[in-house]
């Protein structure tokens, strides 16, 4: 029925991470980060991590911390990482 030609990519758990970083790099390449200073970086990162935990879907990305199950939305956090990576590259 099928050829299974394009299973690499979003058809596995590395797809959202990869494409999230690609999206982050593409959009981050156009960010000129004058409006954000170094004091805001950790706040935005921690906020992004909290929202990613709230949006977590896949059971593969879960850990147990103090008897609580924690999940991470890998697309969200990888996009944040891609954005910040490109901003740091542009600041050099």
């Amino acid at each position: 029925m099928s050829s299974e030609a394009i299973t690499l990519g979003l058809a596995n758990q590395w797809g959202p991470i990869l494409f999230g970083i690609i999206y982050g790099l593409i959009i981050g390449s156009k960010i000129d980060s004058e409006e954000i200073n170094r004091a805001k970086y950790p706040i935005v990162l921690i906020s992004g991590l909290l929202i990613a935990m709230a949006l977590g879907t896949y059971p593969e990305y879960q850990w147990t911390l103090f008897d609580h199950v924690i999940r991470i939305s890998e697309a969200f956090i990888s996009t944040i990482i891609g954005l910040f990576t490109m901003m740091l590259i542009r600041r050099q």
Partner: peptide
Amino acid sequence: TGVDPYQIINVGAFGWDNILDYPDPTHPGV
């Protein structure tokens, strides 16, 4: 392309599907 509704093929492209396993039981194709 890439959809496997009959659950016949368990090995993905180039045999890599075992390493990069998909969390869902189905393949959405393109």
